Amino acid sequence: MQRSFYPTQTQAKLPIKYGPWLQMFALSISWRALTYLKHSTKNPYVSLSPAAEDLLPTIPDELHTLAEARRVEWGKALLLGQAPSDQNDQHLLFLNGKNFPYERSGVVGFTVCIGNSIAAIVSQLGPCCVLGVLRDERPLAWKGTRIQSLGGKFHVVSQTIPEDFSTWLYNYFRNIANIEGRV
Rank of each mutant, 00 (worst) to 15 (best):
Q82L: 14
N175Q: 13
G19P: 04
R138M: 07
L125D: 05
S166M: 01
P15W: 07
L125C: 13
E180K: 11
G81D: 08
G151V: 09
G151I: 08
G75K: 08
E62K: 15
P84K: 14
I114K: 00
L134Q: 05
F110C: 04
N175E: 10
W74V: 15
H91K: 13
V107F: 14
E53V: 02
G152C: 07
N88I: 12
K98F: 06
Y6I: 10
S166L: 00
T10W: 04
L48C: 04
E73P: 08
K38D: 08
F154T: 02
L80T: 07
D164T: 10
P15N: 02
A26Y: 07
A120Y: 05
A33E: 14
Y6P: 02
I161V: 15
I29Q: 10
A177R: 05
F25Q: 13
V112F: 03
S47G: 04
I16Q: 07
W31L: 01
S117I: 01
G181A: 10
Q23S: 15
S40P: 00
L22W: 10
V156L: 12
I29P: 00
G132V: 12
P139T: 09
F173P: 00
D136H: 09
I176E: 03
N96F: 01
L66A: 12
N96V: 03
D54F: 01
M24L: 15
L93N: 01
H39K: 04
E73V: 11
T65H: 14
K13T: 14
R104T: 12
V183I: 14
R138Y: 05
R70F: 08
F100T: 08
G181M: 10
G151Y: 07
V133C: 10
L79G: 06
P57D: 02
T35D: 15
I16W: 09
A67R: 01
Y6N: 08
R146L: 09
A177T: 06
S149N: 06
T58G: 05
D164S: 14
H64G: 06
P57R: 02
L95V: 03
A51L: 01
K42Q: 05
